[in-house]
């Protein structure tokens, strides 16, 4: 464990709970893409299948349980409890256009052709594009609530911090995983446009609105 990965995991945890609290407190999921949340739930479920078979540490197992539970809870709040506030008219990204190619790529490019490894690879590739429905929804509505932009900032920062973690681990531990690094770069690059808007607008107390 290193500081980059720890801060990254905490930033990830913060993002998930900021979103969960926003939906719970405001009893509304307006402006939030349910499709992205479904993809994130799929990412965690396919990645943490080794939760019971491969014990790494208490921290690792605890975080896996929290990530799965909180994301499933978010999907539940969006599609069942506060379904009436779900903005399906703007959440129209065809996620099958993400899941199918990612699934195919996981079969073709992986470290080991075993079910668990292919599912892990699928999860890594899927996570890199899972935010697209959310970013697409914001581009359609033209704006995002400030709390939603804080959620996105924390979520985007987590994988950017993981990139620093991989640089650290490469030099100090000789650890390198090309699949995770490439997917992590793609994932972080997708946030660049948002990071620019967040830093130039939200940081100065303005609302995040995309240039029309």
């Amino acid at each position: 464990m290193n500081i980059f990965r720890l801060v990254g995991d905490l930033s990830h945890l913060l993002a998930i709970f900021v979103l969960l609290l926003k939906i719970w407190k405001s009893r509304s999921c307006a402006g939030v893409s349910g499709k992205s949340q479904i993809l994130f739930a799929l990412v965690f479920i396919t990645r943490y299948l080794d939760l019971f078979t491969n014990f790494i540490s208490v921290y690792n197992s605890l975080m896996k349980v929290i990530f799965i539970a909180s994301t499933v809870a978010t999907v539940y709040l969006m599609y069942i409890k506060f379904k009436a506030t779900y903005d399906s008219n703007h959440d129209t990204f065809r996620i099958e256009f993400l899941v199918v190619p990612v699934g195919g790529l996981a079969f073709l490019v992986n470290h080991d052709f075993t079910p668990l490894e292919i599912l892990w690879t699928f999860s890594i590739y899927l996570e890199s594009v899972a935010i697209l429905p959310q970013l697409f929804m914001i581009s359609k509505t033209g704006e995002a609530e400030t709390i939603t932009s804080h959620y996105l900032f924390a979520l985007g920062s987590y994988r950017a911090l993981y990139l620093l973690n991989w640089i650290y681990r490469y030099y100090f531990e000789g650890y390198f995983d090309l699949i995770a690094v490439v997917a992590g770069c793609v994932q972080t690059i997708l946030y660049c446009d948002f990071f620019y808007l967040y830093i130039t607008k939200v940081m100065w107390g303005k609302k995040l609105s995309l240039p029309a």
């Binding site: 990830h12 080794d50 975080m63 990530f67 995983d177 090309l178």
Partner: peptide
């Protein structure tokens, strides 16, 4: 290039 400790990252 695989990490011997298996999947130790979240």
């Amino acid at each position: 290039d695989k990490d011997t400790k298996g999947k130790d990252e979240l």
